[in-house]
Design a protein around this nucleic acid. Structure first.
Lengths: 191, 191
DNA sequence: ACCTGAACACCGTTCAAGT
DNA sequence: ACCTGAACACCGTTCAAGT
């Protein structure tokens, strides 16, 4: 990669981060290019599709979420670790408006650039869930896929202005469904 | 309304129903007009905004959902009635792809054409919830808003190709969170 | 190698002109 | 009253032409 290309690349990424923070995942590619003082075709050259752009934007965060699961796995009781990580996950999908739909489709499509990172998050979560299930503190009739789905659903909920104010409470309700024997004190402690 | 106008109106509505069934709520207005063999401006004249179109498309179904709540209220035990209606609601938001986001925003915006019908659904659900709470079969720390939110979240989940296959199971998980004392047999009976 | 303007096919909105 | 084509300002995609 040539020097000017590399400079364009990182500048575009920084600008994209701003614009997406403002307008969510439906931000206009043209708008990003404009704000970066660069031709639209140049943006498309670095990121041929909107998904490629979000791959670059989100990969680090997704990997951090996977990493977080490993840490919690060794240092916390299974149920608290699960809830703490679940909270972390919901917060992440809330980081950019609309990102949850993107992840859901990336998760379904193996061709997607984000698929690998999503799968890593998925299985990191599954490990935490299985540990809590073995411990008897998480309901047995769930798997990593269900956990991922519920995390996404909560992410979607807090993304809706109508439901965002109730986010914390809805988190509590869904969490209590995941924990087989939900003593509300323990849940609050883990939060 | 003139005769030709009325004819156009109902024809547009029928065509819109088809196109939306195919392409979801993001269907192009231009496309609908085209398929109806009518000028785009004519479509916009009858339905000035996409939301006005969906008001016409969905109002009958929303009112039916409200009606359904009243019926269940008189003829079923509180917990079964609640679960049965909840299921009905999830099925409805699944009727057109993407309709759940539309409803969430209509619910938040009092100016929306769909606001009244959404509010009616909302309070019909709240009545069923309160009845089950008084009965002791639904958890006490929820209100109609939470019920509406969870219904929407499930609607969103089954709308995602990645999660749709697990819809029934996720319904069961969330339902068990709503019912304070969830004996899985009773839940299944109510389904 | 890398960048870019321009052409293309789409979209929703608006409005003057037709019947 | 009601309909409509056309102009407008947007969008993402593509590509020949520039450095």
């Amino acid at each position: 990669m040539r020097a000017d290309a590399r400079k364009n690349y990182s500048h575009l990424l920084a600008v994209a981060r701003e614009v997406v923070a403002e307008h969510g995942v439906d931000a206009s590619m043209r708008d990003i290019a404009r704000r970066a003082d660069v031709g639209l075709a140049t943006l498309l050259r670095h990121f041929p599709t909107r998904e490629a752009l979000f791959d670059a934007l989100l990969r680090a965060n997704l990997d951090a979420l996977t990493q977080k699961a490993s840490e919690l796995e060794t240092s916390n009781p299974p149920d608290e670790a699960l809830v703490a990580w679940f909270r972390e996950g919901v917060a992440f999908v809330h980081s950019y408006s609309g990102v949850v739909a993107l992840m859901a489709s990336a998760h379904a499509d193996p061709e997607s650039a984000l698929h690998a990172s999503c799968a890593a998050v998925h299985s990191a979560g599954a490990r935490l869930l299985h540990r809590a299930q073995a411990d008897g503190t998480a309901r047995a009739d769930m798997d990593g896929e269900d956990l991922f789905a519920l995390m996404s659903a909560l992410g979607w909920l807090v993304d809706q202005p109508a439901f965002a104010p109730r986010g914390a409470h809805l988190f509590h309700v869904i969490t209590s469904a995941i924990l087989a024997n939900p003593p509300s004190n323990d849940v609050k402690k883990a939060m």
